[in-house]
Nucleic acid binder design. Structure first.
Lengths: 273, 273
DNA sequence: GTCTATACCCCGATAGAC
DNA sequence: GTCTATCGGGGTATAGAC
């Protein structure tokens, strides 16, 4: 009896997955606002009314796709973070503040550690470990976005008109942000952060943000972190949505550099101030 | 005879405008991918086939809307730039580097001019005039976006599936970027820029970008400028598309601060390095 | 849980009369 | 330039038999 129920449940799960897979394909071809249960059913060799046993409406299917997408990019970010935290622990420090792979600084001053005396061992204050994690997470998000542009558009592009995301999406939606917060919290605890100046008029808002989403971070960092979070996706959206067409060609190196500079705004790179 | 032709042309222009207005309304209600000639015609009391005399296809109507939107935001940016350039010439300098309105720094160090000796008159190098223009342009774009969220989504959100923008859109699409370039070129010429470091691996790309879009700027500034341009729209997209929901509350002050920091990445604020 | 059938909508695009 | 009529699609959602 429970075997039967088990089999049924398994079948149900498989069909549900097949529906979502096909729906993702259609997302690519037609866009979220034109996602159609009928077309999905047709492609699956089912009849449209059968789908209603799995998703009570088109919007519920859309919600499932949105949650899956947030979970997918969130998991990519978390995995990159875990990897960078273990394997990268020793190696990143050697790379210094520019974890950019083979060819490093050539014509310009390399990003220097905090103090005016830039000898490497002088202080543990800016090892580059956390910057490396920051860049690794950002690159993981970018890789995900390039591999899943339509799911990216679904969650970070224009909202689907007439559709309002239910509460279930907010948890998955915050996963990438939580990873960025974790990177900064580690850095704050272990090495300290180069606190950006916090103008007085922003102080109440910064304190509210810190209290709400990152109680472990100083307000002077929490507010810039939210800004950097959105700016990271600004870079990605312009690349994915084609605004960089005929403007930026060496996309990856451009991205790495921009994201490294972004790290400065949240105190991960030290420097002046 | 020419009077008749004039009247006809006027009527044609008026009807065309009415069609676009109604289409913009539908953009808000249904989204770009569902924009429908029939619905527009219905709402206008016309019959659908009549619209084909004005727009040969749905995509042509979409193109017209996209061009209008780019022109609209571009003009807003240009107007803000002009205004800041004339009226703000004297007043901005007095404000210093934080052109934020009434309540300025309270609890944090105010953004200081370049050198270690921070007395105001020591050098003309960082007057704040150009920073003021930068912020003014950014705020004008934001005001436009808040006033026209659906047109914003049309041009800076997910691309419309199955639609490819024709060449006619690229001119209007670049207007905002050109204003940002103009701000930096003025600053470069008049006061110099605090050149960000340019890692060697980014150098060829930076030189290409500078040559292509901003021959008047050093490559070390041109590349960060493109990044800042996309990041500016990252801030806007997150605000317009609702990602800041329950995260950022004091949107305007948050934006001004983020955009001011963005100015630092393009050498408009001076500071370390 | 899947099927057929159905009610009741939508769309882009064109032909041809006026 | 606007109309009617039409071709040939599309869609959500439900009822009721199996």
């Amino acid at each position: 009896m429970s075997a039967i129920r088990g089999a049924r449940e398994r079948a149900r799960i498989e069909v549900t997955a097949a529906i979502k897979d096909e729906a993702r394909k259609q997302l690519a071809a037609e866009g979220a606002s034109k996602l159609s249960l009928r077309a999905v059913a047709r492609e699956l060799g089912m009849v449209s009314s059968a789908l209603y046993r799995y998703f009570p409406s088109r919007d519920e299917l859309l919600t499932a796709l949105i949650i899956d997408a947030y979970d997918s990019v969130g998991e990519a970010a978390e995995r990159a973070h875990r990897t960078a935290r273990t394997e990268g622990a020793a190696s990143a420090a050697a790379e210094g503040a520019t974890p950019a792979g083979p060819a490093t600084a050539e014509g310009a001053a390399p990003p220097a550690p905090a103090g005016p005396a830039a000898s490497k061992a002088v202080a543990p204050a800016r090892s580059g470990v956390h910057l490396g994690r920051w860049v690794a997470v950002a690159c993981a998000v970018r890789d995900w976005a390039l591999a899943h542009p339509h799911e990216y558009a679904l969650i970070y592009g224009s909202p689907v008109p007439g559709y309002t995301a239910p509460q279930d999406t907010v948890g998955p939606a915050s996963r990438v942000g939580l990873v960025l917060i974790a990177v900064l919290e580690d850095a704050h605890r272990e090495e300290g952060l180069a606190l950006p100046p916090l103008p007085g008029e922003l102080r109440p808002e910064a304190e509210r943000i810190a209290a709400d989403i990152a109680p472990g971070l100083p307000p002077a960092v929490a507010a810039p972190l939210v800004a950097a979070w959105s700016q990271l996706f600004g870079l990605l959206s312009f690349e994915i949505f084609g605004q960089f067409h005929r403007v930026v060609e060496a996309r990856e190196v451009f991205f790495r550099q921009a994201v490294t500079e972004l790290a400065r705004t949240v105190g991960l790179l030290g420097g002046r101030r």
